[in-house]
Nucleic acid binder design. Structure first.
Lengths: 234, 234
DNA sequence: ACAAAAGTGTTCGTGCTACACCCATGG
DNA sequence: CCATGGGTGTAGCACGAACACTTTTGT
């Protein structure tokens, strides 16, 4: 059985930390993912990851960017990386469709317009998802959490400049547990991923010391904690 | 431009730590990779990673196993995992060929028969490789080195039972630098990946204390050192 | 003065490295 | 009894977690 009708699609799990409260004054940031609702069978009504078929003249990263452009302003996507491939012959009924999946990250301060069939969903309250997209999503979240620990990947979730409180909220939302701002600052500071701008932001309405503003030293992915054990001698 | 002639291949970088000395008495273990030499154009004479086209009725892991069976005894492959996809439209001239790549590991004590066009090559002295296979190989080595640090992946490179000296040689060969047997034992022991069998091996020809024999507690990949930093509180 | 929020200092535990020292065997 | 290789004990370091304390603002 040679391969005649095998199609290749690209699917991207795009994450953003967003305020999930009706009242925009109340601060309740959560990790959200971009999904669109299927209008046609199969899986009508279920929510899908953005993506589509790979074209002959593009590689997968290019394709992911092109597909995303239909849903969000792609300039907002600050990081895009490959995850696994899903190739079970029957993952989508009726056709042989291989999915290469990606992880995409959008900074906190971006708020791109969306088509009417597309919306952000908090990962804590996902709707019914189509095909194996739920598995893809779990995979993407796991990868994001892992990389937050040993890389500077948070640059793609944070605004260009930010306070440590804001960065803490981003980490808490993405990891799903409480992170201490003190230690966060020290860990990232020691690794050289965070630099102070020198400026400060105005304090909140109820007073308090004005927070210092920070920036990520680089806006490309870099591994900052390579060897946990079995380091090279020296 | 829809996708008409897009083909999908699976390529596997199979590694084994092997004694690379003419004299089998002298111990000089090195990390080796399985390659076959192309008899036809294009890239005639260059060495390729084992693999081939994906069939419609199989997923990629199945395909990788099937393709490898043509080159080695697949029972020898103790671990197989997905790496990245290479999808540049012109990575192979003339055809649109997407490559999904895998990492395969063969234990030290296996010595499978090989076809005449196929051979093990030490990674320190690679021949001319075909297409982008050199890049794939570098990628695979990096992934292997990383996983040796935070998982029990060495189970797939080690014999079923082994001495700490042997295990040390495996780590040295795979990582490319000297690893201390003392610390190796403690790190892996603490994590519970290594268990003592109770038995000992006979000492070498020049005497010495008989070494204890060990075994890996599991023969499936397990992450043993999840969070280097930003652990959940508790 | 007091509350609130940010930032610093200090202590503690843990995991890894390095190296010295003890153990068991063959010659 | 000595050389050889295996195993253990221990000191030191680096990193991160937790928490008390100081600093800077608004009211």
């Amino acid at each position: 059985m040679p391969n005649g009708n095998t199609l290749h699609e690209v699917l991207t799990a795009v994450f953003q930390v967003r305020n999930v409260n009706e009242d925009p004054e109340v601060d309740n940031p959560e990790l959200c993912v971009l999904l669109w609702q299927r209008a046609l069978q199969p899986e009508r009504g279920a929510w899908s990851l953005p993506g589509g078929l790979l074209r002959e003249d593009e590689d997968m990263t290019t394709s992911a960017r092109r597909q995303l452009a239909e849903k969000v302003d792609v300039r907002g996507v600050a990081h895009l990386e490959q995850l696994s491939v899903f190739s079970e012959p029957n993952r989508v009924p009726g056709v042989r469709l291989i999915a290469s999946t990606f992880l995409g990250l959008v900074p906190l301060d971006a708020d791109p317009d969306l088509p009417t069939d597309t919306a952000w969903h908090p990962v804590s309250a996902l709707p019914r998802t189509a095909f194996d997209h739920g598995v893809v999503l779990t995979h993407a979240r796991t990868r994001l959490a892992a990389k937050l620990s040993y890389t500077n990947i948070a640059f793609a979730l944070a605004p260009h400049e930010f306070t440590m409180s804001t960065l803490r909220e981003i980490y808490c939302a993405a990891l799903g547990y409480q992170v201490d701002a003190t230690n966060l600052q020290r860990v990232l500071g020691r690794r050289g991923v965070l630099v102070a701008t020198g400026a400060t932001a105005p304090p909140g309405p109820s007073g308090g010391r004005p927070p210092a503003l920070y920036r990520f030293a680089e806006s490309r992915l870099r591994v900052t904690d390579e060897f946990a054990a079995l380091r090279p001698p020296g």
